[in-house]
Design a protein around this nucleic acid. Structure first.
Lengths: 147, 147
DNA sequence: GAGCAGTGTCTTGAACGTCAAGGTTCTTTC
DNA sequence: GAAAGAACCTTGACGTTCAAGACACTGCTC
């Protein structure tokens, strides 16, 4: 029993370290492209393609007015573009630019490559188990948000 | 090889989710005690006991002047106390109060307990492997900061 | 005593967010 | 199919917050 408790606390500690490391990486990324952390969160939302301005407001927990000036900042930096949403002409579709990817990718690619290397070193069975571990942990944290 | 790459990317994704979940948890914690995220970072530095004001300035990347007003805010909320440092009478030692722990602990305790439960369900060998996985991942992220 | 390090106070400027008003566009209702 | 209402975004005024910078004070070290 004692060991389980220790292992659990070790998990907590490791998660915190991971959080801190990712946080510092994001901080470095924000400095690199010259934006604040809120803006970077918005940029992260664009990872998989265009998104509506309203969606950003909801995702970041800001008012639409805030998002407007946020988008002004990002657009001035050439990191995003605003365009019409074909499916709703009231809406604004925010798209990432090549510049965004070319500036941010190098910072994150290293990590991704190293994690792929890590996975390679694990072998099939351990890969599955490693992934399961992480997902279990994520679920614990996500469930904690509900209560 | 393809699987390794997929597994690696899955790791990236899981880490991001973990980061996001912890981030939201911290956000909830900050709201709960009525401080902003910078202040919460300072509070986290106090987790293991008293700390010098100068250390906070360094850890948070702020000037000592900024730390002064930050400490004013936290002291007014009753979350920290300022006291003399026995080993250096120039220095100010910042200590967490009981109120800090009593307000913050409930939010984080749930997660800790659940992770301990998770570890229990794993069994000794899998515990070790799970922990190793997390630490490997942490190392990847931490090393990415150097480059 | 001189120089240095740690901290606090005050001022200043800028950044960020909320709020309220207003212009378009979509949707619902009659 | 026209009008009312809702949804989406922008804009500008406003307030708050935050951190930098200059300066003063205290105590350490030599």
């Amino acid at each position: 029993m004692e060991e389980s408790s220790d292992a659990g606390l070790a998990l907590v500690s490791a998660c915190r370290r991971l959080y801190s490391a990712i946080d510092r990486l994001d901080q470095a990324a924000a400095v690199k492209v010259g934006v604040n952390r809120s803006d970077l969160r918005a940029l992260n939302e664009l990872e998989h393609g265009p998104v509506r301005a309203g969606h950003l407001a909801e995702a970041l927990g800001l008012t639409t007015g805030s998002i407007s000036s946020l988008l002004d900042r990002l657009e001035n930096l050439g990191l995003v573009t605003r365009g019409p949403d074909p499916s709703d002409r009231r809406a604004v579709l925010v798209s990432p630019t090549r510049k965004l990817f070319s500036e941010l990718a190098p910072l994150y690619r290293g990590v991704a490559e190293q994690l792929i290397e890590l996975a390679k070193g694990y072998g099939p069975r351990q890969q599955k188990s490693a992934l399961k571990t992480l997902e279990d942990v994520v679920l614990v944290y996500e469930r904690a948000l509900d209560s």
